[in-house]
């Protein structure tokens, strides 16, 4: 079972307590954006087989959103961090790089 530590309340929450929210750090496009940008924002997803940054909500806990880095091929969790960040923290990137030397990196 997937266990993520909620950075808001510090609880190590198991999967049934959490609600997944899809890919994190999407760049938003709204009115005035080109059709290509809007389509990509709405539908195109990285969907990597490997390191993935994603949104979660501690639905049956504190109710807050947070972000997590996880390997979709092994279910290994690299870490969680607050939702109020525009990009993954540098130390988390370094930790993932140490574990996954062939990982191409974020973006």
């Amino acid at each position: 079972m997937l266990i993520l530590e909620c950075p808001c309340c510090g609880v190590r929450a198991e999967e049934s307590e959490l609600a997944p929210g899809g890919e994190a750090h999407l760049k938003r496009f709204g009115a005035g954006a080109s059709d290509e940008d809007f389509e990509a924002y709405m539908f195109a997803r990285k969907n990597p087989k490997g390191v993935h940054f994603e949104r979660w909500r501690h639905a049956h806990g504190c109710g807050k959103w947070f972000l997590a880095a996880r390997d979709t091929a092994t279910l290994e969790v690299f870490g969680t961090y607050p939702a109020q960040t525009k990009a993954p923290p540098a130390e988390l990137i370094a930790a993932i790089k140490a574990k996954r030397p062939h990982w191409e990196g974020y973006e």
Binding site: M1, L2, E15, A19, E54, R70, T72, A73, L75
Partner: peptide
């Protein structure tokens, strides 16, 4: 289905 991106061909107990 599991709601999250997953490439492991196994399910979850809950």
């Amino acid at each position: 289905t599991d709601g999250f991106n997953n490439f492991t061909q196994r399910g979850s107990f809950h």
